[in-house]
Design a binder for these strands. Structure first.
Lengths: 357, 357
DNA sequence: GGGCCGAAGAAAACCGGTTTCCTCCCGTCA
DNA sequence: TGACGGGAGGAAACCGGTTTTCTTCGGCCC
């Protein structure tokens, strides 16, 4: 062997495929195929072992750009969320991260501008070849991306807010969530149950509303106490205030988001009523914050980690060649009981018969 | 011109540099240099114009991987945040996004595991060549990355939580924030002011505490009402409860995070006291949620958008060859007055003094 | 009219992988 | 003994940019 002009850190001290190859006395093609588990490759187990060991020892990591360039996958997915300030997404994000990592993928989080900037953002990620697939959280129907033909060229799914007819929806059982809330309140003796719903054009708002209506009807209750408001504290406050103006007012309110519930608590109290003595409140979305509201809020917990994971699975399936398909998360919603609900007219301590007032 | 075997979408219908070049009748080197504003290039203005027009028309976008591979920059920065569920980061994120975009960069958000997985996460982003620089939000002193020699090889800054001595801190005027809160309370007549502080080893907690102490001393007030708790609702609740056990208890409390404030409101009420009649509460961090707490929370608003933008500027400066340097955001904190503070003994309705049960 | 110069662009090497197609060698079988 | 076959790995093209070096051409000067 004549000298060794190939110091490990020849350039920029990045460990390259060829560094591993040289150190093993093989060519880079073999190393590449071993590390990628190419089934068509024939090597001695000993060589395979050695390559793996050296790669590990040197801390080799493929250059994502080079890999993407060579026609292989970038091994990255983008998760587009509309508002990074909304903690609802944090659990979805975590679920997605973990599952992606298990598959050797990275999830890049991006805040989705959802306006005319959206195109730019999309181009930066997809058309620049940074990612292989897209998880789109909470796309509203007017989202510019949805009407762009460019979207069709990359595998993608919709999470947390369905796009009807897309055949790419990863959804939870939203109607079941509403039904659970209604049943819970009904079990506590409530009959006049109001709904703080979301904007009519948003699919998940509509789904929760449908579930609410269906369960109310099933229980033989009236469905006229429904007010729609924005998915925000303000929206919840306004909607709740309007519900309370009904005569007779509801004895219980179900809110479509935790943000709305925060606003509703505020409005109810502003109206001179107590929670839960005068009005019980249940909210969709279980978040840590619920524990620290006044009073702590009873919620419907959704399988968000599973949702994120399932979305990753679905995109990876598309990448593997499968046609897109809707996915329903089988985990059912669960009521998390806290202090904002109470047996109708019941004392804090008594056993109160919930069934027939 | 013999036929045209170069259909626009020769492969995978991606518009390549060479597609633009052919259509302009020049070579790709010229196109590349025009689009990157290479000052050493000599072309006719007409050619330059034509190239730009064609690139735009075709919607050309450079492949990030190819670009990174060719030794140029990937034009992406990673923003590592410890908890995507924490809305504090959302404004920093937005500030960073916007500034980065202005410079033609993309910000990739990643949740920083801050444990043994951190290495993997780092490797996935940095060593895979996906990003050119790192914005590290809220690194705590024991963060595995800080002790890794690999960090030194990539431009990076610390945001929102300083790493003493790193010379890479992008910081706000934390002591000024505390001072503003204290002055505000002092102006309302409060003298016994408590502090719900954060974990002692966290730099920002310490900074806020220092500012608090300094201002209290300046005003000739006692600084013995300081309790440290975790940066969480639980931590705030526990710390506030302990403050209230003092004799005499504080008439006002300043909390180091909004999460702690939520817990503190809870604990204060659980102790049978009213806000703001019995205890005034101010919190660091102004977030939309503050408006909807019971009562709406008076806060100290920090220049978070500016912080994110400044962090991007700093990393880009490092990329351009400048040595790393600490940066102080010049924008001062501002008090946002809401319902949780009141003149000491002031009486909207009554004078009530539940001081001694 | 030849030489020189600068403007305008062409050519080619290279980045670090992936992948397809070869080659070489050895054992086996006819 | 020679052809064959498969195991083990080598060689090279290619991905889409960037960057350095080279060429060509026209005009100007002497």
């Amino acid at each position: 062997m004549g000298g060794r002009p190939d110091a490990p850190g020849a350039r920029g001290d990045r460990v390259r495929l060829i560094d591993v190859a040289r150190r093993c006395g093989v060519t880079k093609s073999v190393v590449s195929r071993v590390l990628n588990d190419d089934p068509t490759l024939n090597v001695r187990p000993e060589t395979r072992r050695r390559i793996r060991a050296v790669a590990l020892e040197l801390g080799y990591r493929a250059h994502a750009g080079a890999r993407a360039l060579a026609g292989a996958k970038a091994r990255a997915l983008a998760l587009l969320i509309p508002d990074v300030g909304n903690p609802v997404y944090s659990r979805i994000i975590r679920g997605a991260y973990r599952r992606a990592r298990q598959h050797g993928y990275v999830v890049l989080l991006a805040e989705d501008p959802a306006d005319d900037e959206a195109d730019e953002s999309f181009a930066d990620l997809v058309e620049a070849g940074r990612v292989d697939g897209l998880l789109i959280a909470s796309a509203h129907p007017a989202h510019p991306l949805l009407s762009s033909p460019r979207l069709a060229r990359i595998p993608h799914v919709f999470v947390n807010r369905e796009v009807p007819g897309s055949g790419r929806n990863i959804g939870m059982d939203l109607p079941a969530a509403s039904a659970a809330a209604v049943r819970h309140l009904h079990g506590l003796g409530h009959r006049r149950i109001g709904l703080v719903s979301g904007p009519g054009e948003l699919q998940p708002a509509a789904a929760r509303e449908r579930g609410f209506v269906a369960e109310m009807v099933d229980l033989g209750l009236g469905t006229d106490r429904i007010v729609r408001g924005a998915f925000s504290e303000e929206g919840g406050a306004a909607a709740a205030a309007q519900l309370l103006r009904a005569d007779p007012p509801p004895t219980a309110v179900y809110c479509s988001t935790l943000g709305q519930a925060v606003g509703a608590l505020h409005a109810i109290r502003a109206g001179g009523l107590r929670i839960p003595e005068d009005v019980s409140v249940v909210s969709y979305d279980d978040l840590p914050l619920a524990d620290y509201l006044e009073p702590p809020l009873t919620t419907v917990a959704m399988p968000l980690l599973e949702l994120g994971a399932a979305a990753v699975d679905a995109v990876l399936a598309q990448l593997a060649g499968a046609p897109p398909a809707d996915v329903a998360i089988p985990v059912p919603p669960a009521i998390v009981e806290r202090g904002s609900t109470r047996v109708l007219g019941g004392l804090p301590t008594t056993k109160a018969r919930p069934r027939r007032p």
